[in-house]
Design a protein around this nucleic acid. Structure first.
Lengths: 101, 101
DNA sequence: ACCATAGTTCGATAATACTTGAACAATTGG
DNA sequence: CCAATTGTTCAAGTATTATCGAACTATGGT
């Protein structure tokens, strides 16, 4: 069993454009990414998702973005810190984030 | 009088970013769009799709791209001419196509 | 150690999207 | 006008994604 603590993130070179585009093609996920443009967030303080959305649903959204290489999701105490992988995305697909966000 | 076989295309202002991203998130569709970057194509001469793919499947792919506002699909004799809506996309989402193609 | 908190994972169901054959529409050539 | 050509549309089946409750994991506070 893999520790549930540290989640898998694709390396910069392994980020696939199609996966990024798909991850960003959902309005709610895109909205979250736009929030992360300013600064990182803890999952708990993520206000793009109204409180009525179950945490399992939120977690799934984070997963799609994380597995596509769009965001980083690292443990921080009892919380999770979500941050945009701007450096990696800018290096791999220059101009993409600027165009989308 | 407008021919009946004219298909619906969203106006420039009506093009939705999420729809564009979704349309481009499929490898085959993205490949087609990259081909259209150079010049327009007739559907028949579209070589991104191997001949084993049924025409209904191809047609559906064109539809997704057309309804997202990514390509134009206009009748040309017995054929269809497919072209990238570069002007509209550049105007609406500057830098996006450059980053993606 | 215990308990509450914050999130992930699992499993099942619902909602979307894809694929394809068959029917239909429009055009060209004879 | 008729038949061949080129694509679109329809409908049914398949596959992929999304949603969400419940179970589970890890951490921090008391």
């Amino acid at each position: 069993m893999v520790p549930v603590n540290e989640l898998e993130h694709p390396a910069r070179e392994a980020i696939v454009l199609e996966d990024v585009l798909f991850a960003l093609s959902d309005p709610v996920r895109l909205d979250l990414v736009r929030q992360l443009r300013e600064s990182s967030l803890t999952a708990a303080s993520c206000t793009t998702l109204d409180p009525s959305v179950p945490k399992s649903t939120k977690s799934h959204m984070f997963k799609v973005l994380r597995e596509a290489g769009v965001i980083r999701n690292v443990p921080e105490g009892r919380n999770r810190r979500l941050s945009l992988r701007r450096d990696d995305l800018d290096a791999r697909f220059p101009g993409l984030l600027d165009a989308v966000l």
